[in-house]
Design a protein around this nucleic acid. Structure first.
Lengths: 216, 216
DNA sequence: GTCTATAAAGTGATAGAC
DNA sequence: GTCTATCACTTTATAGAC
């Protein structure tokens, strides 16, 4: 009955540690296996805790999933915002910078097996997720990122780097042209996409985007 | 797969009738519940046959799923080809005709709870589907439709209705701009999308497409 | 149409850290 | 002493066989 864990402070004083370990493991396993295939035992094993600990912290499997999903959406949104800021804050070459941003964003979202592969699982389970939670996930994730991108595009337009009337629509078009195709090809990360294929998809997408919203 | 017709349903000869009933039921239940949630009992019940009959015809649950998935892709491709032919064969008003086609196509693919809602399930299970089957599904489904659309666009270009260099890329852009957004909004049919929202999405998408590939 | 084996969700009693 | 993790157990559902 020894846990045989040398590194872990067996003392269970602070729960945030264990809770974070569980959340991390859950996002990994849910992202890899999907909701129904992911067993709580597997998550417990991955997290290095017992199953009961998970139930103590999260109540049941569904609540665990929903919690992790929302936390994850926020984290990924911040990562994407960081990428946008890095690539789009100061423009050197508009096409190159947009391309670099789109490639990095696609990799962040579609990176198979990573900690942010939950998007696939959420979409797969959309029909079984309470509408308010689904709305909250959309708001914290895709919609937040789209809004952030729209702000960047607005700024670029104000610098006469491109022409647009409706920033939200332009952001939507950018995502469709530079991301959705790659997401579709890779089944949202379930099947790996080669760097070459990703680059090709993004490059042609950015070119189309710039034909839609050209410099004035 | 067309054989001589057995007039009697309860005949002791071959029974494609039952097989078709099973396939139909399976596509409905798999599409509605997803792979793991769909029980073979539920499919048997929906088909009005015994579970044993299913195992006799299809071997096991996975083979049943893979069979149905491939059949379904072919059927949906034919339906979409019919829609394209109806709306795009003789153009009256290019924007209106493209819009009508895109709306009908989106409804056909995203119609929640219908017999062709399997696309969602396939995408959800992509990581667990053998790569060769996945490739076959892509070829019989999305790629075939994309190819068909590219042919239509080529013809329209030859009639000087639009300008394009790469028909396949243009077809991809059309699908991205007029379908992918709606698919994303509705989680591939899991969440219903209003007619108004669909029409708006498609209309703006067609307009963007025509700005990308304008009349010469 | 019934039966079995299995796997997984969820729970209760116990041991141990502070 | 209290609080929390752990293990063993129960229950339920389902794939597949007879």
């Amino acid at each position: 009955m020894s846990t045989a864990n040398p590194a872990t402070t067996t003392g269970s004083r602070r729960m945030p540690e264990k809770r974070r370990a569980i959340a991390r493991a859950a996002s990994t396993v849910f992202g890899r296996e999907g909701y129904t295939r992911a067993s709580v035992d597997a998550i417990a094993s991955e997290a290095g805790v017992s199953k009961r600990t998970i139930y103590n912290h999260f109540g049941d499997k569904e609540k665990l999933f929903l919690s992790v999903v929302l936390e994850n959406a926020g984290e990924l949104t911040e990562i994407i915002a960081g990428l946008a800021d890095r690539h789009l804050h100061k423009i050197v070459d508009l096409e190159a910078d947009l391309t670099a941003f789109a490639v990095d964003r696609a990799k962040a979202v579609l990176a198979a097996g990573e900690h942010y592969a939950l998007g696939r699982t959420i979409r797969a389970e959309a029909g079984n997720i309470p509408p308010d939670v689904l709305a909250a996930w959309l708001a914290a994730g895709p919609l937040a990122s789209q809004r952030d991108l729209a702000d960047h595009l607005t700024r670029l337009a104000s610098q006469d780097l491109l022409t647009l009337d409706d920033p939200d629509l332009a952001a939507t078009h950018f995502t469709l042209l530079t991301f959705s195709g790659a997401a579709d090809q890779s089944f949202y990360g379930a099947v790996p996409i080669s760097d070459a294929a990703l680059h090709t998809t993004v490059t042609t997408g950015v070119q189309a985007f710039l034909r839609l919203y050209p410099r004035p």
